[in-house]
């Protein structure tokens, strides 16, 4: 199917709030997830990611606010599995059923053709164990089954909660490729994770939560660039001359042990031409790219500072 075929499939979360007793799991959360890209849903454990996803799927009731898919509440979808596929918890499938019967039961409820069961089992690499009881599956196989279940209705929106939990390296690559290809097909893909490097490998866009609040909702590269200053690492035979030159251009090169130089706030495009113009031999020149992990830690450090610098709240009676 091509990208236009999916129609309205935006996920819209508006002013969402969920309180359990006095704990606020989700706090005035607003964000949107667009089709055609993979959105990483990041945050430490307990940040409210799973709660948000459960509300989105109509499993939990929000204290206030709305969570809509294509403008509608999940509970109002006529055959939801045909529109939204979700993996919440790979351990939830009943261990005494076979993988095939588990999927057959799901398919029947949404009048999904039986042949889809064999198709998704094949796609998830579970065709050979379809008749085995789920309790004999490893966590990785259960994740694959959960993803197979999410794909059953060929949905335009795919929501996966920590899909790479327990997956072997091959499975992780498979999931990553799958998510990317689902997005390429124009589907809306929302994937939660608490693993940074993992998320960096598949996400185009990020929604970051901390303590139930929205910390960031930006394209992944922007997120990194805005938080991590670029840095260039270089080696040259004429360090002193280059240093003077760069100081004149407003950079501040610092010599490291072993004769290597680093220049904060610069990119290779800044340094290379200058050195070439002056005929300074460059032995090595490389950008040190910021990682999602660094950017995320930078963000959470800000948050921690913010949290600890707040005046202590007055105790409620």
């Amino acid at each position: 199917m091509d990208g236009d075929a999916w129609g309205m499939t935006r996920i819209d979360v508006q002013e969402l709030r969920k309180e359990y007793g006095t704990t606020r799991a989700v706090d005035r959360l607003t964000f949107a997830v667009e089709p055609g890209r993979v959105t990483g849903f990041l945050g430490p454990n307990g940040a409210g990611k799973s709660t948000t996803l459960r509300i989105l799927l109509g499993l939990d009731r929000p204290t206030s606010g709305t969570a809509l898919i294509g403008g509608r509440r999940y509970a109002d979808l006529t055959e939801p599995l045909r529109e939204v596929g979700a993996l919440l918890d790979a351990q939830a499938a009943h261990g005494s059923r076979t993988a095939r019967s588990h999927l057959l039961a799901l398919a029947a409820s949404n009048r999904i053709p039986v042949r889809r069961v064999a198709e998704v089992l094949e796609e998830a690499g579970l065709a050979g164990v379809a008749g085995r009881r789920i309790r004999t599956f490893s966590l990785g196989m259960r994740q694959r089954l959960g993803i197979a279940a999410a794909l059953l209705g060929n949905p335009a929106v795919v929501i996966l909660d920590e899909p790479s939990n327990g997956l072997d390296p091959e499975g992780i690559i498979w999931t990553r490729e799958l998510m990317r290809s689902l997005a390429r097909e124009g589907r809306t893909v929302l994937v939660s994770s608490h693993l940074m490097n993992e998320t960096a490998s598949f996400a185009d866009h990020l929604v970051v939560l901390g303590r139930g609040r929205l910390l960031a909702d930006t394209p992944m590269q922007d997120f990194i660039d805005s938080r991590i200053r670029p840095r260039v690492r270089l080696r040259t035979t004429e360090g002193a001359r280059l240093r003077t030159l760069l100081l004149g251009k407003g950079f501040d090169p610092v010599q490291e042990e072993g004769g290597r130089w680093t220049v904060e706030g610069a990119r290779v495009d800044d340094i290379g031409p200058i050195a070439a113009r002056e005929g300074i031999p460059i032995l090595e020149l490389a950008n040190e790219e910021g990682t999602l992990e660094q950017a995320y830690l930078d963000l959470t450090a800000d948050q921690a500072e913010y949290a600890s610098s707040r005046p202590p709240q007055t105790q409620e009676a």
């Binding site: 499993l59 939801p80 599995l81 919440l88 939830a92 499938a93």
Partner: peptide, 16 residues
């Protein structure tokens, strides 16, 4: 049996 390991969530996601 639906409530074992929160399996009810799978069932209710299919039949909300």
């Amino acid at each position: 049996g639906e409530y074992k390991n929160e399996g009810i969530r799978i069932s209710l996601a299919a039949v909300p």
